[in-house]
Amino acid sequence: MAKVPVQFTLNGAEKAEFIDSGTTLLHALRDKIGDTSPKGGCHQGTCGACSVIIDGELRLSCLTLAEACNGATITTTSGLSEGGVLHPLQRAFLDAFATQCGFCTPGMIMAAKVLLDHTPNPSREDVVEALSGNICRCTGYEPIIQAVLTAARSNSQNAA
């Protein structure tokens, strides 16, 4: 199979790999680069566990070809905490007991981050809308919604 070069910025670091043409970004991240924070829950684009941020937008890495990401800036959940300090969303998920099995958590946090980046003071409806592409089977969603709202409040307090 033809190998193609891909080059992008992942969580602030330059990455360059040769991959099989047709490889999804999810597989490239997990199997080639070793960032396993995006999870493969369905490989069909219906569960959201593989969500990542590409150039500021929420994307399903299982439906994104790696070779289409040349030159892109990609953020995953593993890149959110800086210097061991958790991102406010990560902190809020902890405090709200918003994780159980944890498999959906990285995707949820990605979806929430894009929301807060675009809408710093979201309503509950905004949060619900932002999370509606992410499946969770454990929590019943309410703790996750609360975590995102809490993170938004702490963000706006810090900004004030």
């Binding site: 007991f97 159980q100 089977r137 454990c138 929590t139 019943g140 969603y141 309410e142 703790p143």
Partner: peptide, 11 residues
């Protein structure tokens, strides 16, 4: 406990 009960009620 609350985690399980809330998630269970949803299920």
């Amino acid at each position: 406990v609350e985690q399980q009960l809330v998630g269970g009620s949803w299920m």
